[in-house]
């Protein structure tokens, strides 16, 4: 029988698989890398992101940590101080508050207070975001806490390709990073995509335009990007052409892509899942006001969560979180201003 030529495998991979591949490939690439977190070894992680790691890399490099977020972060700092690269998983990003001091006072400041002598390649990653009925303590987007603590990279990927490329970039960056994974996207088939087999990174600090438009700019990240895409489709029917920017990394922030878009659309709506007051949407609006005021034909607008916790049952949760409907409404006001 004639040999059948091997076809390139064009298997679509979901967001969770992309993350898992990033961890496995980085662990293979860097034998000085350690992963630790609650239930990440024998169980493979509460969501399965670390499945297979223990078997391949052993219990010295893949640590089932005690339920002690502060110790998980603090020991990661010590390991990194002594030459290791560490991925520290928070079972839910909400739990990161238990390790807060070790993150903002110990880890984030280390490079600064040692005048550059020490740098800490530590990526603290975990599932984040609402819309899943997770209630107050399994739904948060608390990224603003960390954007407000100088010394931390803050990353929020929205696609499988970015999830893998950004996680690899974060692990190689050499600075501590808080990496927000959107758990509603983990196994979402609609966003699964073919990602390269060969090694790649997505550089930190580069926004991407998800949809081009001419009348109004949406600036967003994480799950909100998809809400903006749906809103843009609705607006298209109403004759409004919206551009959608996914900033991907909050620190560092690619402001140029935002201003470039504004020079075309002159109108902006910033959308995120966090509460409005002192949130990152406010920071983006402030920077636009300072640096691109002349480009604006309308007041910059925000669509965010209400200034409330994230409640449990569906009607309550949807009431406080941004929706496509809310985004369309605010966008129309901004477009008509």
């Amino acid at each position: 029988m004639a040999a059948i030529a091997a076809e390139p495998t064009l298997v679509k991979k979901n967001y969770l698989t992309a993350l898992r591949e990033a961890l496995i490939e980085e662990m293979r690439r860097n034998d000085q890398m350690i992963c630790q977190g609650e239930d990440i070894g024998m169980l493979g992680g509460a969501f399965g992101v670390t499945e297979g790691l223990l078997d391949e890399f052993g219990s010295t490099r893949v640590i089932d940590a005690p339920i002690a977020e502060a110790a998980i972060i603090g020991t990661a700092v010590g390991m990194a101080l002594n030459g290791k690269t560490v991925m520290a998983e928070m079972q839910f990003i909400d739990f990161i508050s238990c390790g807060f001091d070790q993150i903002v006072n110990m880890m984030a400041t280390y490079h600064y207070r040692t005048a550059g002598e020490v740098n800490l390649p530590v990526v603290v990653r975990g599932p984040a975001g609402g819309y899943g009925g997770g209630a107050l303590y399994h739904s948060q987007m608390n990224e603003a806490w960390f954007c407000h603590s100088p010394g931390l990279r803050v990353v929020v990927p929205s696609t499988p390709y970015d999830a893998k490329g950004l996680l690899k970039a974060a692990l190689r960056d050499g600075n501590p990073c808080i990496f927000f994974e959107i758990k509603e996207l983990y196994r979402k088939n609609e966003i699964a995509e073919v990602i390269p087999d060969e090694d790649y990174i997505v550089p930190l600090g580069q926004a991407v335009i998800r949809k081009e438009g001419t009348d109004i700019t949406f600036v967003s990240y994480g799950q909100s990007v998809y809400h903006c895409m749906s809103a843009a489709a609705e607006l298209e029917k109403l004759g409004v052409s919206a551009e959608v920017i996914d900033i991907r990394t909050l620190v560092p922030l690619d402001e140029e892509t935002i201003y470039k878009s504004l020079s075309k659309t002159n109108r902006v709506v910033v959308v995120n899942e966090a509460p409005m007051t002192c949130g990152f949407a406010g920071e983006i609006v402030a920077r636009i006001a300072n640096n691109a005021f002349n480009l604006l034909d309308a007041p910059p607008a925000r669509v965010t969560r209400l200034d409330t916790p994230v409640p449990w049952v569906k009607p309550l949760e949807l009431h406080v979180l941004p929706s496509v409907e809310k985004i369309v409404r605010v966008a129309l006001q901004t477009a008509k201003y």
Partner: peptide, 24 residues
């Protein structure tokens, strides 16, 4: 090890340092 004002906060760092040392 460089300390902060948050006392006892260096103990986990110390533990991490020797964990890495043992690995080496």
């Amino acid at each position: 090890i460089h300390s902060t004002s948050m006392l006892a906060g260096t103990i986990p760092v110390a533990a991490g340092v020797v964990y890495a040392d043992r690995m080496n």
